[in-house]
Design a protein around this nucleic acid. Structure first.
Length: 285
DNA sequence: GAGATCCCATGGGATAACTT
DNA sequence: AAGTTATCCCATGGGATCTC
């Protein structure tokens, strides 16, 4: 099995859970991770004070960033990163990095907002340790643009591309930039200090632009013309369903659409008009 | 079964940038 | 100059699942 993602942080999660068949974080590794020696760098504290988290959380993130890199085994490292990312998500209201500053009005009393990032981290290590299993195969986790992947044949490919929304930038960088930066300690990812949430620049992908998305889908389906394709998509995306079915039909003799109504509970303020969507699984073979 | 907890590829308004 | 597309910031809660 091969997993690949456009973003680094999510490919690390895949390395921890998909590529990794047997490595767990044991007590010794955990003690090394939370070692309290003051960190050699304080990039996170310097850049995100007053933006996300408490000062203690930020110090912990600087410390853990150094300690993770002391682990020798890449699967141990990946497990620690996966646990760290999930800790950061749970400690951030709504799990996104689009809001900053005083977030007390988001506090609805939930436990996730009371725990420190470090307390979450210890819990999430157990969560990820319990998620490790051996499927009896050699699996890979890659970080790649879909068009840069080697031409390896796969029986079935599950595609979950970004989509162009009708009025916004859809790129995940907007919501998860903090995790992407954290995954490499912002090495080579300069922060745009003019932004309130201290974003990094999003990487280019044709899937984000109306003018290029149709061609990108066409090329992507062509790239997997010899595999069964399962494409995950939504009715509030662009291109629309008819266009996607037609595009897949250029490369596949049979295209089947499965639909499931869904209501988002995230942007649910009264003026949100598109919370009701249809989720699609478009299968070509 | 009732209450607590947790999850969520979000959406709209304003404005900037780009097209024709 | 008007229309279209891209970007930035920030506001928002119901239902599935868990716990007792």
């Amino acid at each position: 099995m091969i997993a690949s993602d456009f973003m680094n942080f999510s490919s690390l999660v895949a390395r921890a859970t998909i590529a990794n068949n047997k490595v767990h974080l044991d007590g010794k590794a955990i003690r090394r991770l939370i070692d309290g020696t003051p960190p050699a760098h304080n990039f996170i504290e310097q850049n995100f004070d007053g933006v996300f988290y408490t000062r203690d959380d930020l110090k912990f993130l600087d410390r853990i960033s150094g300690n993770i890199r002391q682990l020798q085994d890449p699967y141990e490292q990946a497990l620690a990163f996966a646990a760290l990312f999930r800790s950061c998500l749970k400690r951030q209201p709504r799990g996104v990095f689009t809001i900053s500053g005083d977030l007390s009005h988001y506090d609805d009393g939930r436990r996730d907002l009371r725990l420190s990032v470090e307390e979450h981290f210890l819990e999430q290590i157990e969560v990820y340790n319990n998620a490790v299993f051996d499927n009896g195969r050699r699996n890979k986790a890659l970080r790649s643009d879909i068009f840069q992947l080697s031409n390896e044949r796969v029986d079935l490919v599950y595609l979950d591309p970004p989509y162009v929304p009708r009025s916004d930038d859809n790129c995940y960088t907007k919501r998860y930039h903090f995790l992407e930066g954290l995954s490499c300690y912002w090495q080579g990812l300069p922060i745009d200090k003019t932004t309130k949430v201290k974003k990094i620049a999003k990487r280019y992908t044709p899937f984000s632009y109306r003018k290029e998305a149709v061609d990108a889908f066409d090329r992507m389906f062509g790239r997997f013309a010899k595999s069964k394709i399962a494409l995950s998509y939504s009715s509030n995306g662009f291109p629309d369903l008819d266009q996607l079915v037609e595009l897949m039909g250029k490369h596949k003799s049979s295209v089947t659409v499965f639909e499931k109504p869904h209501r988002y509970h995230f942007g649910t303020h009264s003026k949100v008009a598109r919370a009701n969507v249809v989720e699609y699984l478009i299968v070509g073979q």
